[in-house]
Nucleic acid binder design. Structure first.
Lengths: 142, 142
DNA sequence: TCTTAAATCACCCGTTCGGGTGAATTAGTT
DNA sequence: AACTAATTCACCCGAACGGGTGATTTAAGA
């Protein structure tokens, strides 16, 4: 990293010198302004690209190991799980009781019971612990 | 990628316009040449860095490591979980009822209830779903 | 417009669960 | 031999859960 910065500084110095030289040419020989600007723009763009690459190349080596959860939407649809049912499943897996889920979703306990019943039917299970297991293996929940 | 190129083009257009504007100012009001050059150099360096970053194809090597379960024996001991309690936790996580666990371990339902009660105390939870969650996060069960 | 799926809520009933208490047996340690 | 931890079992009670049925409202689609 330090070396990169030093190199960048050197390159900058070279470019600035070139700029000064061109500036001199500009004053003495009356070079085309557009040409002059073009050179400078090109030079610094190139320098920028190069610096940008150098300064980040090492960051790109970031290796992902974590099991990064991706929802299995195909399975969600196949089973026909509704949004609410999916939410309830998720909260169940967090160890909440039906009453706590009801409070969290601002609905009544009976509503949650209905959702969970339908959920169990669709997942073909009969207990919440099984639903959680199933939900995890089907990647419906993290 | 295509969008990046388009964006780059737009940015370039903006910068060129700015350059032209400055050029005009330069001719009319005789701005400091160094100042003018500095602005252009800065602008294009920044543009170059940005373009360099955007255009670089990020080769993120995603290495998927199998979940390979390793029991956390240190935690097992720290919590003082007995063999039976551990077994019960495992079967709970498989979605079995206390009665089913009792049958599988050839003991009475009451015994399993005792084990699960102690288990909950040690895991500091109050429901089996929470116990499962805790057991998984502490790597006591797969 | 008619139909359908989703979401909401209610009541009943039986099962399962969790907490509390108490107790007997066994195996290992001191 | 005394002590301890682990395992086993029992009973009680209230809370939580699951299953079944029925009903209303609302949003979306045919």
């Amino acid at each position: 990293m330090t070396r990169t910065i030093i190199l960048y500084g050197l390159a900058l110095a070279v470019l600035v010198s070139l700029m000064k030289y061109l500036e001199y040419q500009f004053l003495v020989r009356a070079l085309s302004t557009e040409f002059y600007m073009g050179i400078i723009a090109l030079g610094f763009t190139a320098l920028g690209i190069w610096a940008g690459l150098k300064l980040t190349t090492k960051k790109i080596v970031t290796v992902q190991v974590g099991p990064e959860f991706v929802l299995n939407e195909a399975e969600l649809q196949r089973l026909g799980l509704s949004k609410r049912e999916h939410e309830v499943l998720e909260l169940m897996a967090q160890g909440l009781t039906n009453q706590q889920i009801a409070d969290k979703l601002f609905v009544s306990l009976n509503t949650i019971k209905t959702h969970s019943s339908n959920l169990f039917l669709k997942l073909e299970v009969s207990r919440r612990t099984q639903a959680i297991q199933r939900g995890k293996e089907l990647r419906l929940i993290p």
